[in-house]
Nucleic acid binder design. Sequence first.
DNA 1: CGCGGTCTTCAGCTAACCCTCAGGAAGGCG
DNA 2: CGCCTTCCTGAGGGTTAGCTGAAGACCGCG
Lengths: 216, 216
Amino acid sequence: MVLVEDEEPVRQAVERALRREGITVTGFADYPGPDLILAAAPDLAVLDVLLPSGDGFELARELRAARDLPIVFLTARDTVEDRLDGFELGADDYLVKPFALEELLARVRAVLRRTGRLGTAIEAGDVVVDEQAGLASRAGSPLELTPTELRLLAYLVRQRGLVLSKHQLLTQVWGYDAYDPNVAEVHISALRRKLEAHGPRVLHTVRGLGYRRDPL
Amino acid sequence: MVLVEDEEPVRQAVERALRREGITVTGFADYPGPDLILAAAPDLAVLDVLLPSGDGFELARELRAARDLPIVFLTARDTVEDRLDGFELGADDYLVKPFALEELLARVRAVLRRTGRLGTAIEAGDVVVDEQAGLASRAGSPLELTPTELRLLAYLVRQRGLVLSKHQLLTQVWGYDAYDPNVAEVHISALRRKLEAHGPRVLHTVRGLGYRRDPL
DNA sequence: CGCGGTCTTCAGCTAACCCTCAGGAAGGCG
DNA sequence: CGCCTTCCTGAGGGTTAGCTGAAGACCGCG
């Protein structure tokens, strides 16, 4: 998890509390730019809105453009308009200072649970993926996946029954801007071969749109 | 979506606002028991905590036991302990009254987005089309449509009961300026064949003018 | 430096899709 | 009823999206 908060005591308290929960935290005291944040490969970003040299909203915009990262805003600005601005940017939660440490924890846990990143294993139907542990299985049988296949499968499982375009897969799973759809096709193909050794097709192609995992 | 809220004016305001957003709402004025709620097959439950004959927390516990339903609490109890109790039960969000309608909307949207259930589907009669997901169904049975058929159907469903000229269809669905009415005819024909496999005709031809979908 | 594993690129193939065409059915009108 | 227009629909062919086997590039490791 990434935490951007300029007030030293607040940041330290939050960091400590989250670490006690077993959540890995990378703290920043100021707007570090999106690259530094993404380098930490976080599950979630908690952003202060008012930073010495920048704006948490702007940072959120940049993060969202690069990757679909859950975001919780943390700020003293408490008018309804401020909050709406936050949600407009795709915030997952918005907490007003002063806040109870416990409440922040609870909200962070709620978001992580929802995004399926708390207990590391996520499942859909008879497919189980644990990205952290690097394990995946179907109907009980373990799957021998390469790293990219694992990330791809984890992403597909996390997104319920939505259609994911190849472009989306490339940006979210690979971090590319480049756009060679065949890369996605090749990996989907490999993934299918391994998945379908233990059951029927679960990765359906939607011509012209992308791929869809069988909804539950 | 299900909304349980005993204060009549609040409930009506919220219902109206959500409906305006295109979200289907089933409202209850009192603790209806989990079965009644689940019968509505909701994507999300917004629960008041203090109800005339019961406790929203208890209801949430029962709902959670039955199904993994996202839950947003809505309450006048605003101590941190109350909120922590809510999150403890697996709440996805917790909003303190009095609240701004807009903020509730934003938070509901945020949860739905996160859970991937922000409905993009539109319906007319027994026909449901989700252009984003590339899915369409009639009377529960899925329809196997080609991309153009899907776009065409989505357009027809969106225009409630109006007469659409072929020219209009071609420009709106195809983006053509060209005007070969037979193109539209061919696709309407294919669409009819697939639709009428599961029910009576809903796409009527209005000779000389165009086509009309059966109003609701 | 060579080796195994993995990712990307390439190219050929298949199947789906869309448009065109043409013959026939249906509707409108004198 | 006869004629004309509009619409329906099956079939053919050109085009393209997607699949997949195989070859090349890259990387870490002994």
